[in-house]
Design a protein around this nucleic acid. Structure first.
Lengths: 214, 214
DNA sequence: GCAAATTGGTATGGAGTCTTACCAGTTTAA
DNA sequence: TTAAACTGGTAAGACTCCATACCAATTTGC
């Protein structure tokens, strides 16, 4: 007979919500490792379950599909990185362009490259997976570009930058920052310090926004 | 009985080599269309054969696998674009930095975005496909970065740019140029003129190389 | 203790794919 | 004309994988 508080029943000293969260976390950790090392397409749901130590049924209780799990992973790292950048920007001196640029890009890169598996998933494994994932990824890139564009417009308004359309500049800068992020987590390359990479990115951002293209 | 000149035997007025080339071309065109619209992973070999109007056996005579076909497509567009850039650079005035940058990047973008399907394949569909493809793609990106780095070093030698390590700058610029290329072939966005995009890229290249990061 | 809830593991059906092999028909060269 | 070469289509076997269903075993609350 079904009881009212079935939802709150404990199992192995954990509530339903706790058990689900734990399974979810285990799956996320397993997927982070598997997607980054074997690649998204080469990883099967069965393999993920085996690594996470849960059954296939539990998998489908948490995620509707492998792609949904990738989607979650992507947002995990990407949203965090962009929010870190936005938050750093918000805290920085509104009148010191260079310091702001450095703070924002450093926060982004620091968050994004803290776990190289995550960076790989966000910038490589998530690319070209499906039409839905691609739309989501493009939207996320647009958010990042908008953040840069918005800041550039703000600077233009207070005469710290020329007034112009920064759309293409923002797109280019997003590409540059992503390129640096990927390079900094690619094993083959010599590991560059975060400071050097952030300095390079800062330099590029300031140069791109301060001067008008001829 | 096998005759000696079987290789040169004609069929439908075509030599063996001609027939193979024609099939190859048909497969490449079919793959360009299918990979760009349906995505690489969603395209089956059977589908490619059907589109190209050839049999599965012929497919395997030309390409060992679907990935080998993608590999060919990738090189097709990417090598051409980088060579176009290098060639434009070689022809440009060795002392006029800005003109050189514009010539190089315009040649690259023009070649890369001439067929938006190709651009999509090179920058999206080829990403994260397999370890082998990924290594190949990274190597190609490094070639592009080296081209930029080499030019920057040349400029430094003749005192048109500061002398420093341009490795990270080159990586960032490759990312920026790729970002612009992808944006210019993404349907949703308003189609920007090649001139505007090239101008933005030129501006960024000049700014990044001329000034030293603080 | 016992019924209900929950678990991991296993099994299963179905779909999709790759790759090779075969076949009947067409075209060629002699 | 005729044998050999070549063709497109189809079939088949072997995989892999997804997604669901089932089951025996464990744990819980009462």
């Amino acid at each position: 007979m079904k009881v009212n508080n079935a939802e709150n029943r404990r199992y192995r000293s954990r509530t339903t919500a706790e058990r689900r969260t734990e399974r979810r976390d285990k799956l996320i950790e397993a997927a982070t490792e598997a997607f980054a090392s074997d690649g998204y397409s080469n990883t099967s749901i069965e393999q993920l379950c085996s690594m996470a130590g849960i059954s296939a049924r539990n998998f489908y209780e948490e995620f509707g599909s492998k792609e949904e799990l990738l989607h979650t992973l992507y947002d995990d790292i990407n949203v965090r990185a962009i929010e870190a950048a936005a938050s750093a920007l918000a805290k920085a001196d509104p009148l010191d362009f260079k310091t702001r640029a450095r703070a924002g890009v450093t926060a982004y890169l620091k968050t994004m490259t803290a776990d190289r598996r995550m960076a790989r998933i966000a910038h490589i494994e998530s690319v070209g997976v499906s039409a839905a994932m691609e739309a989501h990824r493009q939207a996320a890139l647009n958010v990042f570009a908008s953040l840069i564009k918005q800041e550039a417009n703000r600077l233009a308004k207070i005469k710290l930058a020329p007034k112009r359309d920064f759309s293409l500049t923002a797109i280019a800068l997003v590409g540059a920052i992503r390129g640096l992020a990927v390079a900094s987590v690619t094993p083959g390359d010599k590991p560059q310090s975060l400071e050097k990479i952030a300095a390079e990115a800062t330099h590029l951002i300031v140069a791109a926004i301060l001067q008008s293209p001829a």
